[in-house]
Simulated scan of single mutants.
Amino acid sequence: MDISEARVGSLVDEAPRWRTTLLGYLALTKPRVIELLLVTTIPAMLLADRGSVDPLLIFHTLVGGLLAAAGANTLNCVADADIDKVMKRTERRPLARATVPRSHALVFGLTLSVTSFFYLWWTTNLLSAHLAGATIAFYVLVYTLVLKRRTSQNVVWGGAAGCMPVMIGWSAVTDTIAWPALVMFAIIFFWTPPHTWALAMKYKDDYRAAGVPMLPAVATEQQVTKQILIYTWLTVLATLALVPTTGWLYAAVALLAGAWFVVMAHQLYRGVRRGESVRPLRLFLQSNNYLAVVFLALAVDSVLALPLIP
């Protein structure tokens, strides 16, 4: 859930009936969450063919991926409708406010999901379509219905769904899965816990009220920030593991941005240990910038095909 959803809710309140319904369906897809698709898929595709990817293939992959993400997010809202009503951060979601009937949302989510499979199969290849379908199934059936409500490590394993855009992008170009795609998967996999837990630290009372065992709701702040620090280091190390297949521009940006990200995580951890007032939301927001900068550097490096050693 992105903190900008409150704005979508306010727009729904002010809109005429038909616009209210339209904005409700749009909010179900969590548009801001889908930005991760754009940030990671294109660089993965460019790296797969070192910048010479057909623009039409990129377009089709993004459309198919967008449909898949929108379908998965909608089904997530359907499954989480009960807890969304309890949490202040999510109480303005369409199903929590009954802006959209739950049965309609279910049909909408299933339609988007099925459409994404056949669209990717038609425009890219069957492997990409299967990866998208597996992502939707894992996110809804494994993360949302099982892990989210049963373990404090929910976002660690559930975050795997958010890593799949790079796999889909790579497979759309090559019709295979190779080690650079797995490294990019690892980058996002390790990045997800510190990103999500930093936000959850601010809204831990929400999770407690809803009975969701998100780590900040069941552990001390020192334990949480220690885990954030560990996963931040793992994220940076994963970005450096991609260096052998990239050029000097990506290597430099990954190193500098990684140092900055680690320093921020250390500051949060040190502040908690000292009993100081901390701002975990700052790390949450800046983690978005970090991931965007790293993958933008990867895209530019791939297009320019800059060698690591001239």
Rank of each mutant, 00 (worst) to 15 (best):
M264Q: 14
A79V: 09
A48Q: 00
D13V: 13
K148C: 07
P310E: 10
P165Y: 10
R279D: 15
L67E: 02
S113P: 01
Q286K: 12
V278M: 00
A209H: 00
T99K: 10
S103D: 13
L229Q: 15
D206H: 07
N288I: 13
F261S: 10
R93G: 00
V107Y: 10
L126G: 08
T21F: 05
L11Y: 12
Q222H: 11
R273C: 04
Y203K: 12
A27Q: 14
T61L: 12
A181D: 05
V236N: 03
L306D: 14
E276H: 01
F138H: 00
V100M: 07
A72M: 04
G258F: 08
G162Q: 14
A69G: 05
L47R: 06
L147W: 05
H130A: 15
P101T: 03
G211R: 03
G51P: 05
G133P: 03
R208S: 06
F59V: 15
T235V: 04
L229S: 14
A299G: 05
A69S: 11
L306S: 02
L229K: 14
A79F: 04
R282F: 06
G169Q: 06
G65P: 08
L249N: 04
V107H: 13
H195A: 08
K85D: 01
T220I: 04
L26K: 08
V8R: 15
S10Q: 15
L120F: 03
G275I: 10
L106P: 05
F284Q: 03
T246G: 00
A79E: 11
I3V: 15
A257C: 09
R149P: 01
A172L: 09
A6N: 15
A72E: 06
A181N: 02
G24Y: 08
V272Q: 09
T196D: 14
G51I: 12
M184T: 01
A252T: 09
F189L: 07
N73C: 02
G247E: 10
A238S: 14
F108L: 01
R50S: 09
D13A: 14
K88N: 07
D82L: 01
D206M: 11
L199K: 03
V100I: 14
P244T: 11
L141Q: 12
F118L: 09
A172V: 08
A305Q: 10
F185C: 06
T111S: 14
R282G: 03
Y139R: 01
L112T: 09
T111I: 09
T246H: 11
R150C: 00
K88T: 11
R102I: 12
T40Q: 01
I188A: 00
S287D: 04
V142R: 04
T235R: 11
